[in-house]
Amino acid sequence: MGTSSQVFVNGLDRVCQVSDDNSTDPTADALDNPVRDLLDVLDLQPAGRAQVSPEVTGDATDADVSERNLDVFVGRSQVTPHGRVFGGQVLAQSVMAGGRTVRSVEGLGERPIHSLHAYFIRPGDSSHPIRFAVENLRDGRSFSVRRVHAMQYGHTILSATLSFQTPADGLDHQAAMNSVPDPDRVRTAAEELAGVDHPAVRHWLRRAMDVRTVEGALYLVPGRQHSAHQNVWMKAIEQLPDDPLLHAAVLAYSSDYSLLESILRRHGLVWGDRRLRPASLDHAMWFHRPGRIDDWVLYEQESPSASGGRGLGLGKIFSIDGTLICSVAQEGMVRVKQD
């Protein structure tokens, strides 16, 4: 695998043009197993360091700007029927990239992620490697902050700021989990899609996550009740390694699956509606307590508003014992093309 070392550029986006000879082809073993495929996608490879020299413009002086050292990683994408990168994948890879640079700082100890704020800027190409340039904004006594840019073809496709905190004691309260049927009483995706043969359906059935919607999935059939609320059970279909950073990354990955569905449900829409033009615009997560995503979690979702071609989704993710693991917010473009 090629590396880029101490490369001087005037723009952050150009970092991804350095040493594009990295091979990110998945192994046959990974492609045959959705969980191994996901773990392979999240196993980012170091691609050296880059140094960005900002241009001085206007009233800025040399004292106002400074050269920034970036850690660069490279990773591949999961294969998708439409050739566009799944946004949750890039979120998860950004968590891994930022977390690795925190772990690499001597003396910090273990600092789990506690918040993530990201903007989806451009669609990604699932056939091309993604580069992740990580900037160390601060390592304080309790908090570490990283800025991550995911890039392809000389452009940023996602920009995220992540914060990590040394575990600490303090005030403690949480919302209560909804009372819903247990996951074994909710239909699986295979049961929801039985008898349907389509590339998108085959893709849905090859997920690394078991996703079960209490109110009924919105793949092809709209819900009977046009409510802006729903509850989704999720877990990885196999046990994952005992790495808190990895579990946080897979939580970020799976949090992007269905959060906009509360908007679709409210308006009687489904993912299979050819008029629908959805796209994630931004994504925020707050990690409150440790949790595992290879055990069942309940994802409570609601949409307080949709307007202007956009919709807002809010979510809370609980472990099966009722512990609130994290809170999620996402705004998406939800346009319906008129016939």
Rank of each mutant, 00 (worst) to 15 (best):
L39K: 04
I121F: 04
L108S: 14
F120D: 08
P54T: 03
T57C: 11
A30C: 12
P167H: 06
E300D: 13
N69Q: 13
P199R: 10
D182M: 08
A248V: 00
L312C: 06
K316P: 00
F287L: 14
E110H: 10
R289M: 02
H155V: 07
A329P: 06
Y257H: 11
K337A: 15
V52I: 14
M234E: 07
L38W: 04
D37Q: 12
F120V: 02
D43M: 00
T323Q: 12
G195C: 06
V232Y: 03
H198P: 12
G109S: 09
L251Q: 14
R224T: 15
D242F: 01
L12C: 00
L218W: 08
L281H: 07
R49V: 15
G291S: 07
M234Y: 07
D71P: 01
V334G: 07
A194R: 13
R202I: 09
D32N: 12
R103K: 11
D21Q: 14
E238R: 08
L116C: 07
L91D: 09
T80M: 05
D43V: 01
V9R: 10
R206T: 15
A208W: 01
S94Y: 06
E110V: 15
R49W: 12
S4V: 15
I237C: 06
G140S: 05
Q239R: 13
A252Q: 06
S53V: 13
T61V: 04
D339Y: 07
V134L: 04
F143A: 02
I263W: 03
S179Q: 13
G48K: 09
I325N: 03
N10A: 13
V334S: 02
A236V: 07
R49L: 10
R335M: 02
N69C: 05
L108P: 02
D139A: 12
H117N: 15
F120K: 04
A284N: 08
A194L: 11
D20Q: 12
L70C: 12
H203P: 01
G170K: 05
D273S: 12
I157G: 05
R292E: 10
Y299E: 08
A60T: 08
F86T: 02
T101P: 09
R266W: 14
L245P: 09
T27P: 02
F8S: 10
A284L: 05
R146F: 02
E67V: 11
M285D: 06
T188D: 11
V134N: 06
D40W: 14
H117E: 07
R131K: 14
H267D: 14
G88D: 06
G315F: 08
L171I: 15
L162V: 10
N231V: 01
A63V: 10
A228C: 03
C326F: 02
G48I: 14
S144N: 01
P26W: 05
G291Y: 02
D321N: 13
D273G: 07
D321R: 00
L12I: 15
D295K: 03
L42M: 01
Y119G: 04
T323E: 11
G291F: 02
Y299Q: 07
D64C: 01
T161W: 02
D64N: 08
G309M: 06
E55W: 07
R84F: 15
V211W: 01
R275K: 10
C16L: 00
S115Q: 13
L31E: 13
V211A: 10
P26S: 11
L276P: 03
H203K: 01
E135I: 00
W271I: 01
L324D: 04
R68V: 10
D21I: 00
